[in-house]
Each structure stands twice: as structure tokens, then as C-alpha cells.
Design a protein around this nucleic acid. Structure first.
Lengths: 334, 334
DNA sequence: CTGAAAGCGCTTACAG
DNA sequence: CTGAAAGCGCTTACAG
């Protein structure tokens, strides 16, 4: 049906080798011959068969992306950054999500094998070395939000520690002492790091109380439930630090349901600064994470490492965050 | 490096044909031979080369997805539905976004050609036939939110008309007469259809006024701006119908900035019912669209049409919506 | 500057 | 039940 190299060669009266040279700009070709070939190819609407090309070159020009989840703006922003970068470098994107464990990742990777030149993956906490066992030795890999400890992988992550520490200090400086925190799952490294920073600062200032830590899972719903628990605290909390914005949204909602006004009676803040946060009621104080950039940086590194002779990047880069103060936080009620 | 069919055949003392038969469960093979081959394959950690397989079978087991945008929860929900369905059917996903025009789509499709068995695409308004010109004749295609008029394509869309009509009627029945509407871009068919329904009902009830229509672009930001215009209306509007939820979020934010309370002084409602909407302050009245299902239905149809002998689906399916009344709407102030 | 030929790793009639 | 062989559509030394 579709024209092949052979068809073009036949119609142009040359060999397939010559056509291939013209199409790939490899090797010298007579200018006149070149023009004729290009004409014929256009006339035939010839489009190279990428699969055949991949088989012989062992390059697919496709990069894989394995994500744990697809819910919420955080992940769509990551994909947006990844997609943007991939497009401008003319790479294609093979996407797969809902992979929470190394086993999931292993399974999801299987069909990708051979179809991709490299992989971006967001594995559960500290699984870099386990991952190295199950991925092909030569495959370029970039880890998202996971340190490349003991592995040959590249990694891009966020300075969760500094971000969370600044937020807690900001809250403390506002006068809060009872700061409740809603965490993500224990396996979630972003959550763990943010929580550790919270603990360190709270301890340091002498306000640490494990009773202030409520377990969530980074979704709005668990935060709504967490608010109930928090409102039952004694002595009461005066601020809620949700370890991501989705949960801050849930907390705001739960508080509204309970008739608590923010920030007059309770301060609320989040982490990530997803695009929606500035439009919330009240606008959310949060820690800005360059989410799309996180994806873009990962993709940039991956592209670089699948391309021969790219510049050399540091193995591990940590993106900085920024405290964004809006209207959901204020001094505690007196 | 990696083991090939030939390696397995050699070590098992059989021909590659037999190994292929075992691995694909095609054709009869002696039980003992089969076991031996499987053992050898496992020992060698053999994984079939998908590219080579694709070249010979002319099937890639990969489906392409071309989306206009990746901002916001609407698109991540669509992708989630698509991905879920693809995974359970063991298809891979090639994703590309930021394609607003038929030209963009044409360009983005080029590198996908040959790599995919079918395509899901969300084209601009009414471009189905233009699209048919630029896509290969045999390629299975499913259109998202675009009628398949004059084309051979499948299509899945939303009953925008009924949804918007119900919302406007609901607002009218609440007592509103001056209902401002914030629209999307003119090329956006979802927006256009919702707007048409709005106009029809407003005309029918005798409250139609073109001055109530404010142009937006489906992002929060334009809705914040639109609110300013709306607040300058004379006679004033008492309700705002944002034609998607992202703009309702923006409207809520703009109103808050202007010190207008919702719904006491102004009712606000949206369309799509993105996951966040129920957690807003106040929780948003909206038209529920089964967003993930939209993606899943499209993928289901695509999978069906690339698989030989699948059941036959109607060419065009329209998903129904549901009015979700929350707390952002109330009777107008007296 | 150009072509004949090998080969990438598979699948699939066709014989036996 | 099994194998030899052709072939999918390309690229790339190797000769000339």
C-alpha cells in the first residue's frame, strides 16, 4: 500500500542505497540525482518506515515514561514538561502509569523494551538499586524524585527539605506552635522528606508533638478526613501544613464544612504550588515546585544521554523551591 | 548483547521457527520440546524484540494519542481513562500534545506513522474531513469531542447541549434572569455547543442579551478578567455560567478579589465537574462529564477497530452529562 | 558518486 | 510436530 524505499529507488532509477543516502543526508550524492529522488519520493508520498529503520539502527527515537499515578495537576504538569522537551528534540513519548511498586514498573517496562532508547521513571522510595536489577544494563534512565543511590541512573528531584523547613519556620514565626501536618504515604519519598524537615524544625524549636502528624495519601479526600482528627486535637492546632497542595485543597474543604474560617481561625498551607492554588479561596500559601521544569529537566538529561556525544550533566540535580505566601495563612487567633 | 530468538534456538537445539511457535502459542509443538525451549528462554532472559516483530507483522501494539493541550485536570483525566483502558488491553501509548490546528496534528502525526496501529485525536472544531485528507486511508481513528461528519472516523463526545441547557434552566428556575456566560475559544467545539444551548434557552425564556457573553479561553486567568467585565454590566448579572470548571475556578477567584460573596451576591457554576470542583469554596455547581470515561470509551473503540473481528460499535457515541448542584448557586439576591 | 549485498530479529507459509 | 527459507523495509560497510 504505502510506498517503500524500493519503490522510490525503482521509479528514480537508482539503488535503494542511494535513496537512503539522500533521505538521511548520509554520504555524497550527485545534486541532480538527489533532486530526482526527492521528487519521486514526494510524488509517491513516501514516508520512511520507522520500525524498519529502528530495527537496523537499534535506535527508536522514542523515550519511555513510567509514572505512579495520573491523578491531579501535579502529574499533568510533569507530563507537560516532559512532552514539551521531547517534542522540541523530536523524540516520541511512550507513556504508562499506575505503577506503584518495582514489580509494577518491571511489568510495565517489559512491552516497552526494544521500543525505547531511554526511560524516565518515578519509582517508590529509595528503590533505585532494586530498579537497576530489573532494567537492562545499557538503558539510559532518569529517576524522578528518587535519589540515584547505588545506581548508575541520572536523577532529578526537588529540595523538599529546604522547602518544608522554610514553610514550618514561616508558620512558627507567624506565632503558630501547634502545627498539624498531613502527610502522604510512607513509601512516598517527597512526603517523607518534607515530614522529616517538619520534624527537625519543630523539635529544634521545642514544639514537636507526634500527635500532630496525621497520615494522608496526597489526595483531597484523605485531607478532608484528616481535618476531623485535627479539629479534635487537644491542645488545638492553629495551623495545618498539608504536604501537598491536593491535600491542602481537601483541608480547606473540610474546614469549610466544619465552619472554621481560614486563616482567621486556622491557617492552611500546602506544597507544590499547583496552578490552581493561586485561584483557591483563600489563595493558598504553598511551596512552589517547578513541576513542569522537573519533567523537562529529566527529559533533557535523558535526551542528552541517548544522544552520542552530548554534553555531560551532573548525575543528580536537585531543583530549588520557593515559599509563596498568599492568604490562607496568618498569625494564630489570640 | 541481549539474547535473540536465534540464541534460544541454538541452545535448545531447535529451529527458530519452533521457538517462535512456542513463544507465540501458534502452531503445535511437542510438550517436551516446548518445556525445554521455555527453560532456555528463561535462562537467557530472552525478551522478544518488539520492533522486529512489528516489522514482520505490521502490527505495533501501540496506539497514538494527539491532544491539543495538557493544562489542567480535564486533560489528565482524559489521559487517565485512555491509559487505563490501553493497559488492560495490553496496548502501549504514544502521546503527543500541544496540537491546536490540523497542521499541528499533521506534523505531530508524521513521526508516529508506522509506529502505531491506530489514533485518538482531539481536533479543532469540525475538522474531521480536513483530517481525513492528511491521515493515512487505512488508519483506525477515533475523534474526541468532534463529530465525524463526512469522515470514516469513529467519534466519542459529550452531550454538551443537554448539559448546558439543564444548567441554564436550573439557573432560570432559581430566579436568575441576567446570567453571564464565560465562553471558550470560538474554535472549541465544546464551548460552542454549550454556548448555543445557553443562547437557545435564554432566547426561549426571553432573557437573551449578547452583552452577557464574555469571551474566555478555558483557562482560570481569562475568567478572572472576565469577572471584571461582568461586574461592570448594567443591568447587573446575578449569575455566572463558566463554560468549563477551570474558568469557574477563575471566576470564584475574581469574585473573591472583588469582595463579592458566592452564592449570596452572585451564583457561579461551571461545566465538566473536574475532581477538584467538589472541594472548592464554595463547592461548585457544575455539569458532570464522565471525563475519564470519555478517554476510556475512545480507547475502547480504537482497540476494537484495530483488532480483527471485534464487536461492531456505533460510529458515533455521545456521553450523557449530569447536573451536579452544590453550594455555589442560589436564588438571586432580592 | 553509486550499487550489490548482507543483515537487523522476527514470523509464516510451505514441505516434509 | 518440525525445519529451511523467504521476507518485512530499512542502513551500512565494502567495492568500484
Amino acid at each position: 500500500m504505502a510506498a517503500t524505499l524500493k519503490d522510490v529507488a525503482r521509479d528514480a532509477g537508482v539503488s535503494v542505497a542511494t535513496v537512503s543516502r539522500v533521505l538521511n543526508d548520509s554520504g555524497p550524492v550527485n545534486a541532480e540525482t538527489r533532486r530526482r529522488i526527492l521528487d519521486v519520493a514526494a510524488g509517491l508520498k513516501y514516508i520512511p518506515n520507522g520500525v524498519a529503520r529502528s530495527l537496523i539502527t537499534a535506535r527508536t527515537n522514542t523515550l519511555g515514561v513510567l509514572l505512579p499515578d495520573l491523578h491531579g495537576e501535579f502529574f499533568s504538569e510533569i507530563i507537560r514538561g516532559i512532552d514539551q522537551k521531547a517534542q522540541q528534540a523530536h523524540f516520541q513519548l511512550l507513556l504508562s502509569s499506575s505503577h506503584y511498586s518495582v514489580e509494577d514498573i518491571t511489568t510495565a517496562f517489559r512491552p516497552m523494551r526494544g521500543h525505547i532508547d531511554g526511560l524516565i521513571v518515578m519509582p517508590p522510595d529509595l528503590e533505585a538499586d532494586a530498579l537497576e536489577q530489573v532494567l537492562p544494563p545499557g538503558l539510559p534512565v532518569v529517576l524522578l524524585s528518587c535519589p540515584p543511590v547505588n545506581s548508575r541512573f541520572y536523577a532529578v528531584d526537588i529540595d523538599n527539605d529546604a522547602g518544608a523547613a522554610r514553610m514550618v519556620n514561616y508558620l512558627l514565626n507567624l506565632g503558630h506552635q501547634r502545627i498539624a501536618v498531613i502527610t502522604g504515604r510512607k513509601q512516598n519519598r517527597d512526603s517523607t522528606e518534607r515530614l522529616e524537615a517538619y520534624r527537625r524544625i519543630m523539635r529544634h524549636r521545642g514544639y514537636y508533638d507526634p500527635g500532630l502528624e496525621i497520615q494522608g495519601d496526597f489526595t483531597e479526600r484523605t485531607a478532608v478526613d484528616a481535618v476531623e482528627t485535627i479539629l479534635g486535637l487537644n491542645p488545638p492546632a492553629t495551623a495545618i501544613f498539608a504536604l501537598n497542595d491536593a491535600m491542602a485543597v481537601g483541608a480547606l474543604s473540610g474546614l469549610r464544612g466544619a465552619g472554621i474560617s481560614v486563616p482567621a481561625q486556622m491557617s492552611v498551607c500546602g506544597f507544590d504550588d499547583i496552578p490552581t492554588s493561586r485561584y483557591l479561596n483563600p489563595p493558598l500559601t504553598s511551596v512552589r515546585v517547578p513541576i513542569a521544569q522537573l519533567g523537562a529537566e529529566a527529559m533533557g538529561r535523558l535526551i542528552n544521554s541517548v544522544r552520542p556525544g552530548g554534553e555531560s550533566f551532573p548525575k543528580w540535580i536537585t531543583l530549588q523551591t520557593e515559599l509563596i505566601v498568599r492568604e490562607s495563612t496568618a498569625p494564630p487567633p489570640i
